[in-house]
Design a protein around this nucleic acid. Sequence first.
DNA 1: TATTGTTATACTCTATAACTATA
DNA 2: TATAGTTATAGAGTATAACAATA
Lengths: 164, 164
Amino acid sequence: MAEPASLAPKQLGAYFALMEAVSLLQHEVEKQLRAEGDLSWIQFQLLARLADSDGRLTMTELADGVVYSRSGLTYQAGLLEKAGLITRGPSPDDERATLVTITEAGAALVARVLPGHVEVARSLLFDPLSDTDVDRLGDLMTRIRGHMRALPPRSAAPRKRRTP
Amino acid sequence: MAEPASLAPKQLGAYFALMEAVSLLQHEVEKQLRAEGDLSWIQFQLLARLADSDGRLTMTELADGVVYSRSGLTYQAGLLEKAGLITRGPSPDDERATLVTITEAGAALVARVLPGHVEVARSLLFDPLSDTDVDRLGDLMTRIRGHMRALPPRSAAPRKRRTP
DNA sequence: TATTGTTATACTCTATAACTATA
DNA sequence: TATAGTTATAGAGTATAACAATA
């Protein structure tokens, strides 16, 4: 590698602060969701995404940034279905696809859990931020997320080594 | 609650972008650490923290923002010890405490894994950011982390309900 | 052949509670 | 009594590979 194998101290500091802050935030968020709705963060995201999308998505659409393996989504969908929060059925457009639909109970649960969820985000994340800060944070994270999403999924991975 | 149970759209957008971006970043980081050093992110953090702190810390000091239960740390320390990356021994100052020491192998592993790790952070996180952006991100996340760390651990939790 | 989704399985990790020992 | 750490155990979640069905 031609590049030096280090980040500037500022970058390193930003990186660790980011990771730790989000870890703390996620931990509190999970606690709130579990306590008030018996949901994991992933399950909440799946439901919220459905609620946002007219209530129906295919499994693949649903998986997008939330889950990193097909079987993981099947597992989570199984739990949500068992709990009566979603329904799975065949898709008219593509017979391979499964269409996931949020139930009334699912939508109600999201609505019930949301206020507390929002309160956690506000008190932990937004409390120390000014309006300008929020703008900047949103701008930065939106750009970063876009960059990450656009990256070649794994073509940049190191060429497969021959030594197993 | 006197406050409206919603976040401004800007806040909501920033929140979800933050959570998704870090989720993507963490996933790639874990892949790199697993591939190049057979380490989880948590294990890497523990080793890195030790390497940063003259090589020895008590379990409690080590746990700080990294792990959220005592037994979880004992479990991870057990793995690291079994792999020869750390050593555990009694503390001279407090006989209740366990003093964790990083081994040469542990320090070497951190050194071996670090370049790839840094490269992931650079390409995913810092690539789309200007110097000013990095400053702002660092400032924001440092403040947010400080705010979260300062919060009353759980005294703000809703008073225990009487209905179990 | 490629894609969508499920299943089986094995593994990692986490958390609660009970316990020991020291401060 | 409170704190530091370990253990036992049980449950949640994850990922890989093999599979079936449709495009």
